[in-house]
Design a protein around this nucleic acid. Structure first.
Lengths: 347, 347
DNA sequence: GCGGTTCATGTAATCGATTCCACGCAGCCA
DNA sequence: TGGCTGCGTGGAATCGATTACATGAACCGC
């Protein structure tokens, strides 16, 4: 079992003390070329690898970041996670992902586990208004950054995108196409993105003198099942909406399911738009008009902010704009297609 | 900073020794009710949480599993990861995910990092034929289980699904629809799933006396870009295939992109089928005929096998069947739709 | 009343690293 | 030559837990 060699074995094999081995490993300047060579030789003859657990205990740092996201099955978050890991790796950190599945209890479970492991910092996209645990962690000095969603009133940097302008563009687009009865599938009111998107939508409608009545606001939870349920509710209304705007891509998927189950067509029978753009929206029937976030950039910026905080530099909040991508799901544009997300993401 | 309290602080606050505190924490039977109560009180007055790093160092176990998957952006793997985490959590383990992005070097990076952290066991879906590092780890006694893909000749349990029967069903379906020129977008030959799917496809064709010429075998890498490139190649052929079978869902997405870019229609101009079924395939234009794996079951079984191995029980390899889900992308069936994947996954 | 259990507890070793401190040895300058 | 500086090195403390072993008290039956 070569993997079980410890620094002591290396020291013995090289004929030096453990202190010297450690110095070689952390390339401390004060070690003779001769000793260094002997240690190196011993290291790879034994296949020695330093024990990160022991090192962390001693140095009180794990070079690990925790990322608690709301839902791994959501392509938006999975892309975010990917970009976070990439940037973290570039900066010499590992990432441990916790999937909250939109459940506050699971979120707490992961936060607790990550804290127990003494991660150096925490990236969170909170599922709720803030559990005591997370609040304590933030106040207790754990380096922390919110990404995508945040908790108001907590002194933690936020990296997110502002979708308000894009939502205004969307409403303008819908209005131009003649739609007047617009409904929204909202996310949980306890999340910032959940409430902000509704507010922005309502305000944008107001500038066209259109109201957003309560029965056109469906409570979803950012997952597909709720999109289906809420859409069913809309379709059962005496006067169903002409457009459904889903506050995330999974609820849009659910809406598509519900519409399809009734044999209705998009956009002829009902139009659909979504927040969050994903590669699949290019290929759905019809391609879905969506609001795209600069996801990769968001992940990168979040990691940079967190690492700044960890390494003692002042971290900065970042807000990036989102933008509207018009496709066919709200009517009209059947030609002159914008580049697909696949094309944009091609390497 | 309440989070920095150590077992020593608790012992002091409770007026007992650290040994007693430790005993209470690990609920060792031999501790008086009185001492237990005092310790508990101290614990939550200090907000004490045991340091998992220190504990791991001492006990030589981290209660953590490593999962190295080929591509997080692939919905198949993300679903797998989710199920793995779920089962692991149920058994009292955490999971650290490493995304190899189909790159052997990245795969090695993650394997190394995970080994350095002394994870208790490793779940791998190998990107290549096996790096020395992974082989050493397997031989060196690190508990390990392959999931989805595996490396032949290594004595490690494999949890996977067998797609051969489903591929036969697919070919029968295609043949019945009159298709005779069939092409495949293969995965990397170095991966078992990459080569097996081609072999199974060729054998199934053979039973209809249909050949699979080299120019109808495109080399992909399981990612979308390669699906696009290969499909472009097929379409440029003097005699393009009537059907393209993509060996995973991302390459199918790429194929869809390529087909669409030329203004062609599925299935009228060219038919498409994919390995791996995902919720989006119900909503693409047209809905895609695909081979579905019991992904959630695979994740669960893999974790159980690994934990068996870790805890000293004999681990078992598991092979589960995949099955064909017929939709419209190969022609014909326009009615009598099977339940959508959304419906199957509804809670 | 005494040897032997059992039970609750504390002392101290240990896990595998890092790092402070001290020591010995060169080299250098006065 | 004596003292100072600086470098390479090793000894030992330390991080925060777990746990083997020792100890002492209480209790049992004979």
């Amino acid at each position: 079992m070569p993997s079980s060699a410890s620094i002591k074995d290396v020291a013995a094999a090289a004929g030096v003390s453990v202190a010297t081995v450690s110095r070689v490993l952390n390339d401390h300047p004060s070690v003779s070329p001769d000793a260094r060579a002997r240690v190196m030789a011993a290291v790879d003859s034994l296949g020695y690898r330093p024990n990160a657990v022991a090192r962390s205990l001693r140095t009180d740092q794990t070079r690990t970041l925790g990322l608690v996201i709301s839902d791994v099955l959501n392509p938006y978050f999975t892309e975010l996670a990917r970009s976070v890991e990439e940037e973290a790796r570039a900066l010499g950190y590992s990432v441990i992902i916790g999937n909250a599945d939109e459940r506050p209890d699971l979120q707490d479970h992961h936060v607790r586990t990550l804290l127990d492991r003494r991660i150096d910092g925490l990236l969170v996209s909170p599922t709720d208004g803030g559990s005591p645990l997370m609040l304590d962690a933030a106040r207790g000095g754990t380096p922390m950054v919110f990404v995508d969603r945040w908790i108001p009133g907590v002194d933690v940097p936020v990296v997110r995108s502002d979708g308000r302008a894009a939502i205004r563009d969307l409403v303008a687009h819908l209005h131009r196409l003649g739609h007047r009865r617009l409904a929204i599938i909202a996310g949980p009111a306890a999340t910032t993105t959940g409430s902000e998107r509704v507010t922005a939508f309502r305000e944008a409608l107001a500038s066209y003198a259109i109201e957003l009545p309560d029965f056109y606001i469906g409570q979803g939870d950012f997952q597909a099942g709720s999109g289906r349920r809420v859409t069913d509710g809309f379709l059962d209304l005496p006067e169903p909406p002409e457009v459904v705007f889903a506050a995330d891509n999974l609820m849009a998927l659910g809406a598509l399911d519900a519409i399809r189950a009734r044999g209705l067509r998009v956009p002829d029978d009902i139009a659909l738009a979504a927040f969050d753009d994903i590669p699949w929206f290019v290929h759905t029937d019809p391609p879905v008009t969506a609001i795209a976030q600069p996801t990769t950039e968001l992940g990168r910026a979040a990691v940079r902010a967190l690492v700044d905080r960890i390494e003692g530099r002042p971290p900065a909040s970042v807000t990036l704009p989102a933008h509207l991508v018009v496709r066919h799901s709200c009517g009209e544009p059947r030609s002159a297609q914008p580049p697909t997300s696949m094309e944009r993401r091609a390497q």
